[in-house]
């Protein structure tokens, strides 16, 4: 039984499970008691042997693992892709000088108010009134159809002017621009039509034609949109 206890004590010592006092006591006994020293050495040797067997077993298990070769091409490729991305981000950030022409056009566009309840010009004809109700409700396609139906009536220019705005909202900039161009000579809508026609040209990426038209507006002292045209021309100049 004593030997059994000694074995348990030696195992605890080897596993580092004894307190400092217990360790000193065991080491002292080992130095003084030859029989105990022999037991200690033999058991420590046995434990070492089993640990050696465990080492070999782990090594053998690890040798079975098939490590996939690392794709060494991927890393430089990712680095190149990241560099290109970074280059374009920085270029956009520091060297592009403002919003696009289309964004400038959108910022300058302001849809006119609906004329459902107009003052001083008598009531609207019923079909035109229906068209304005659809316009107020932002039903652009419906409103455009109804304005077109009134395009041959007594208020044809009003109908066409608002139909052009409906086309603008529907991103049909060429149709809108053509309608605005037809209204350039109209005394009531002429100045607005010229301004919106220029904006339609910008939306169609016809910057040069738009700038010419804006230049005409800007040089006309009596034009209602003169100030806006000048501001827009400056923005266009700084963004190009």
């Amino acid at each position: 039984m004593t030997a059994e206890r000694d074995i348990a004590l030696i195992e605890a010592y080897l596993a580092g499970g004894l307190s400092a006092d217990e360790r000193i006591k065991l080491e002292k006994r080992k130095a003084e008691d030859a029989e105990f020293a022999e037991l200690f050495n033999q058991h420590a040797w046995t434990m070492d042997g089993f640990e050696g067997m465990q080492l070999e077993a782990v090594e053998s298990e690890l040798r079975r693992i098939r490590v996939k070769p690392r794709n060494r091409w991927l890393r430089p490729l990712i680095a190149v892709a990241a560099s290109i991305l970074l280059f374009f981000s920085l270029r956009t950030l520091f060297f592009s000088s403002g919003p696009s022409v289309s964004e400038l056009a959108d910022a300058s566009y302001e849809a006119p108010v609906s004329l459902v309840e107009r003052n001083g010009e008598g009531p609207l004809p019923a079909p035109l009134r229906q068209a304005f109700i659809a316009y107020s409700n932002r039903e652009w396609a419906n409103a455009a159809g109804q304005f077109e139906a009134s395009a041959n009536g007594p208020e044809a220019n009003t109908a066409n002017y608002y139909r052009a705005h409906c086309y603008y909202q529907l991103s049909r900039f060429e149709d809108a621009g053509n309608l605005f161009s037809d209204l350039l000579e109209d005394p009531r809508y002429g100045q607005q039509a010229q301004w919106f026609s220029a904006i339609c040209l910008l939306k169609r990426d016809l910057a040069k034609a738009a700038e010419e038209q804006l230049g005409e507006i800007a040089s006309n002292p009596g034009h209602f949109y003169r100030g806006k045209a000048r501001a827009l021309l400056e923005k266009l100049a700084s963004s190009s």
Binding site: D48, G49, F50, G52, M53, L55
Partner: peptide
């Protein structure tokens, strides 16, 4: 230590 233990493992076997 590992080298020694492997040698002891061989003898222990």
């Amino acid at each position: 230590d590992a080298m020694l233990k492997k040698e002891r493992a061989r003898q222990l076997r």
